[in-house]
Design a binder for these strands. Structure first.
Lengths: 114, 114
DNA sequence: TAAGTATATAATTATGTGCTTATATATACA
DNA sequence: TGTATATATAAGCACATAATTATATACTTA
């Protein structure tokens, strides 16, 4: 695939967002899956507002999309984003994070699959 | 080429470094060229200590290498770095920055070519 | 060796970022 | 409609980061 060019300033904005452990892991997780906020809270063992704020930043640049299903809001990577081809090669070099979701399934706290 | 995996925490460290306009532009510039500190100072229109500190951070993780030639120290991307295959796809998506070096050549302040 | 140029380092300041606490909004269900 | 659950937002604080200023070090050349 021919890569599209991205301006330096846009690139630094995106890279700044990826330069955070929580957000980068999130993106890797939801590149091929879907997660809701409370799952992230459990996975990252942090507060709900903190997770919401990270997701907000990713949403603001269009990297993730949300879909409400009842009381839950499910997040996934927006592969229609103009930046998707920029971040995909990065995500592909990261180790799989699915063990984190497996742990939720074992504890019975996984929601997204329903 | 089969990509090597990089741990999430290492990746965020590297991405944090790339998430800065000066450093990202620097890396793109010296991926295939060589520049010395005073050239960066002129290109980025900033102070010499600021440039040195950016280079220091890149050097600390092994992303760049330095070579002294007389009074000048020339910097270039260290393509032997374990992280090179991680950052290369990122740099490749950035627009060419060679116009900045051309401007130095036109002004007669380009050093590295000698 | 003295003066000039190039670069590095240290200390300080200014700004940015992430997390917490508190509160608001939205949905579900009894 | 009232309560519980899920999520978002706002304000404040703590910490991190980038730039500046001042100074030190290294090399060059007269």
């Amino acid at each position: 695939m021919l890569q599209t060019k991205i301006e330096i300033e846009e690139a630094t904005g995106i890279l700044k967002l990826l330069g955070d452990k929580t957000r980068l892991t999130m993106l890797k997780l939801i590149d091929e899956q879907t997660c809701c906020v409370c799952e992230f809270v459990e996975i990252f063992q942090t507060s709900q507002p903190s997770i919401s704020q990270h997701l907000r930043k990713l949403k603001d640049v269009g990297l993730v999309k949300e879909e409400r299903k009842g009381q839950w809001i499910f997040y996934s990577v927006n592969n229609k984003s103009a930046y998707y081809s920029f971040i995909k090669p990065i995500l592909d070099q990261l180790p799989d994070q699915n063990d984190k979701l497996k742990q939720l399934e074992e504890k019975g706290t996984r929601i997204s699959c329903c």
